[in-house]
Design a protein around this nucleic acid. Structure first.
Length: 194
DNA sequence: CGCCAGATTGACT
DNA sequence: GTCAATCTGGCGG
């Protein structure tokens, strides 16, 4: 298993969002491996992006401009959402991990989520953080190291023919270009759209 | 400290 | 399809 190195995230957010499809998100929870393959992501940019938290300033904007490869966790509607900071040197940006396909520790994840249906386990940004017991304590911690018990491993490269794009979900004001990436026909993608 | 919008989810018509 | 629970973070006072 190879943990994605920090330089993996030193690229434009849309490139990193695309590259993260097919990689594995791993969480060590009470000594056990919980994991899933990333099947859906969204790229967020700097202040020029109307849907980006970077526009609002404050701590989140600072973190989005800091070290690529660190986690950005923030709360909305009582859920935690997991992002990875990604941008070229001097840039601003982050990737929202919107859905994973469960691989390891499924029973534990079901217990944490209080659901039995595999399809419903991690097919949404708030659902997967709950299933992996990811919370604010990971905010600002590196995802390119085993230290914190949360990281992303290399796994497979998804061929271009299996990647689809759409506008970002749930945002009130989006950019012209579609910045949501997902694996075609994967049953764990959160919502169908266009 | 109060206000309030929001990258959601799940329950319900 | 609609809708509200529920809470974080930013900002104004």
């Amino acid at each position: 298993m190879i943990i994605l190195p920090q330089r993996f995230y030193q690229d434009r957010p849309d490139n990193v969002a695309r590259k993260l499809l097919g990689k594995i998100l791993v969480r060590i929870y009470i000594g056990q491996r919980l994991s899933g393959m990333i099947v859906e992501t969204e790229a967020y940019f700097g202040p020029e992006d109307p849907a980006s938290r970077a526009r609002r300033g404050g701590n989140l904007a600072r973190v989005m401009a800091s070290q690529p490869g660190i986690a950005l966790v923030y709360g909305i509607h009582r859920q935690w959402l997991l992002n990875v900071v990604a941008h070229p040197p001097g840039g601003v940006g982050a990737i929202l991990i919107r859905a994973i396909q469960p691989l390891e520790g499924i029973d534990v994840m079901k217990r944490l989520r209080k659901v039995n249906d595999l399809r419903q386990l991690t097919n949404g940004p708030g659902k997967l953080t709950r299933a992996l017991a990811v919370d604010k304590s990971f905010h600002g911690k590196p995802l390119y190291s085993k230290e914190t018990g949360l990281w992303i491993e290399d796994y497979m490269n998804v061929p271009v023919s299996k990647v689809a794009r759409s506008g970002r979900i749930g945002v009130t004001e989006d950019l012209e270009e579609p910045y949501r990436f997902y694996i075609v026909d994967n049953p764990f993608v959160s919502v169908k759209k266009r």
